[in-house]
Design a protein around this nucleic acid. Structure first.
Lengths: 164, 164
DNA sequence: GATGTTACTTGCAATTTGCAAGTAACATGG
DNA sequence: CCATGTTACTTGCAAATTGCAAGTAACATC
C-alpha cells in the first residue's frame, strides 16, 4: 500500500480535497481510460500506452476505490477478470477531464486532431451528455481513441446535433 | 532538481501531456493560490495552509516555469522578493480549476460555503470572466478566500451581474 | 492436463519527499 | 552603518514512493 490513504494535513479547500484523491501522475489517466475509452480491466489500463507499473496500478485502483470514485465488479463471463467502473462521483469528474483535455490540446500539440478538439470546445455540453449517457447505459464505446497515431477520422458521433 | 523535467514516455493524449506538467500533489495548489487568491511570493505559497516543504515548493516553481505556466518577476519595491505570475497558458487552466473546485465541493463537504459554490456552478462564465479580468489587470484581489475557517460572507463581487 | 491469461505481489534499487537547518541577498530601525 | 529581520532558496538525510523484473494464484482454453 502507499500514497493517498494517509490523512495529510491539508486545508479545507475543495481543490485540495480533490487533489488528495487523484492528484498524482496516474489516477486521472486511469479515470480517463474508464471515462472516454471504455476501458475496464487491469490489463487494459496497463496497456493503455502510458507505461504505468503494475504495482502502482494496483495501488491506484485501491486508492480510487477507497475514495469512492471507482467500483470493482466481477465479470460474469470470466471469473479471473475484474471490471472497474466509475461511480457517480467518478463520472462527475467528466467536466474536469474535458477542460483538461481542451487545455492540453491547446498548448501541447498532441496527437489529437484539431477538428476534434474544436468540436469538443464548441460543444462541451453535447460531449458531456454523451459521456454521461454511455456511462448510464454501461456502453463501453470509446468517446475518444488512443492518440498514439493520427486517427483517420473523428470517432465521436453527432448525437443530437441539429443546430448546424 | 527532480520530477517532471524528464521526458517520460507518455502517450500523445492531451490529458497525459497536461498531467506531466502539473500532475502532482502540489502544482495545482500553487496555481490555485495564484489564480484565485492573488498570491505571488514564495512565502505566501509556503504559508498557504497546505504544508508544502520549501524544497518541493522551489522545485515546483521551477517546473511550472519550465512548462511556461508561471513567470518569475522581480519586485520593484523589494529586491529580495520574486513575484510569480501566471502566464496566458497558466490562466487558461481556470476552467479546469473551476470544475475541480465544483467537484470537490460537491463530494467532500469542505469548508467552502454552499451558497458560494452554487453561485460558481450557476455562473461559471461570470466567475471565469472575473478571473481573467483580474489576471489581465494584475489585480491580486482574491476571488476566493482560504477555507480554513468558515468565512462570514461571500467575497466574490457581483461584477456585471444584472440579469438577476 | 499443459499452456495461456488476468490480476495482482514481492524484492530491491533508484527517486522523490518531508523535515530541520542552513545561507545569501537584501530591507529596516536606531 | 550595523544589528536584526525577511525572503527565497539550498543542503543533508532518513523515510516513503516509484519503476523494474520476477513471481504467483486463480481461472480459462485447448
Amino acid at each position: 500500500m502507499s500514497s493517498k490513504l494517509k490523512p495529510s494535513p491539508r486545508s479545507g479547500c475543495p481543490v485540495s480535497m480533490g487533489l488528495e484523491q487523484f492528484g498524482d501522475r496516474w489516477s486521472l489517466l486511469i479515470i480517463r481510460d474508464m471515462m472516454v475509452r471504455g476501458y475496464r480491466t487491469f490489463k487494459e489500463f496497463q496497456e493503455s500506452g502510458e507505461g504505468i507499473a503494475s504495482n502502482v496500478l494496483a495501488d491506484r485502483l485501491k486508492t480510487l476505490e477507497a475514495a469512492g470514485i471507482v467500483v470493482p465488479e466481477e465479470d460474469e463471463t470470466d471469473a479471473r477478470r475484474v471490471n472497474y467502473l466509475l461511480t457517480q462521483k467518478g463520472i462527475d469528474l467528466a467536466p474536469v477531464m474535458l477542460e483538461l483535455l481542451i487545455w492540453g490540446a491547446k498548448y501541447e500539440a498532441t496527437a489529437a486532431p484539431c477538428a476534434l478538439i474544436a468540436q469538443m470546445e464548441n460543444g462541451r455540453k453535447t460531449v458531456l451528455e454523451e459521456t454521461y449517457k454511455r456511462w448510464r447505459e454501461r456502453d463501453p464505446t470509446p468517446i475518444l481513441p488512443r492518440f498514439d497515431k493520427m486517427p483517420q477520422d473523428n470517432p465521436i458521433r453527432k448525437t443530437e446535433r441539429r443546430k448546424g
